[in-house]
Design a protein around this nucleic acid. Structure first.
Lengths: 132, 132
DNA sequence: CTGGATCCTCCTAGATACTG
DNA sequence: CAGTATCTAGGAGGATCCAG
């Protein structure tokens, strides 16, 4: 009988590894990009500033909660800036920063890869599914 | 009283939009990359083929379930190939395909962006947090 | 108009245990 | 060695109501 089970060893490894993973810039970025609303918001704003409600309409199916949550996170990361015009009713504009625009460029690279290789992926899936 | 609530309209939009989102190659790819195990597996295999147990040891903290699930998904997508050698005990090797290696290249691009800009992001966060 | 606060539900990662 | 089967808890995201 071992003093540690396999699960306990994994658990310890996981705890240590998590710190490394979280401190890894690549994974931090992937976490951001993984959020589907993030990429949609960045894409929407890449053509210019937009108001909150305009974003809500442009990005079909997003709830106010998720839109706000996404915008706050991106603002915190310096990807976009939030501008409040204290009129009545209040008006809020969102706009990509230079950092945000450079992120949009990266998103374009991902898009290019996807468009060039998605067909191969689909063929691979068909082959795999047919064989099973 | 409207015949549809805002939530109902969003729900309908979401259903329609989901089909579009799922059919969008970019989002499919982002979904894959978003999985932390995917990037770790691809990174691990980028230096050469590996056995199942070697991957499990190299990627600290991964459970057998998640490792298998990740490997199966990547095999289905044509990112890697699974080779079974019917010896006793059985031996299974995993290796990146050419498609997989091109994905590793993209991952490198993401990594480069992250390393070049993560500092700006952290500064932005500090500023944001200090202001609130 | 632009959200904040709350509750609630579903989904999935992970633990555990077992097998060819 | 290389997985599979089952269960459960935690968190993400949606609905709803309310406010400045």
């Amino acid at each position: 009988m071992p003093t540690q089970t396999a699960a306990q060893r994994r658990e310890q490894a996981r705890v240590e590894y998590d710190a490394f993973i979280r401190s890894c810039p690549t994974n931090q970025l992937l976490d951001r990009l993984s959020d589907k609303w993030v990429s949609l918001v960045v894409a929407a704003l890449s053509t210019g500033p937009m108001r909150y409600s305009a974003l809500g309409r442009r990005i079909a199916g997003v709830s106010p909660k998720m839109l706000t949550q996404t915008l706050r996170a991106l603002e915190r990361d310096g990807i976009l800036v939030r501008t409040v015009t204290p009129s009545v009713p209040v008006r809020v504009d969102y706009e990509l920063t230079q950092l945000g625009r450079s992120l949009a460029v990266l998103l374009t690279a991902v898009k290019d890869w996807a468009e060039h290789h998605i067909e191969e992926v689909h063929e691979a899936r068909d082959r795999y599914d047919a064989a099973n």
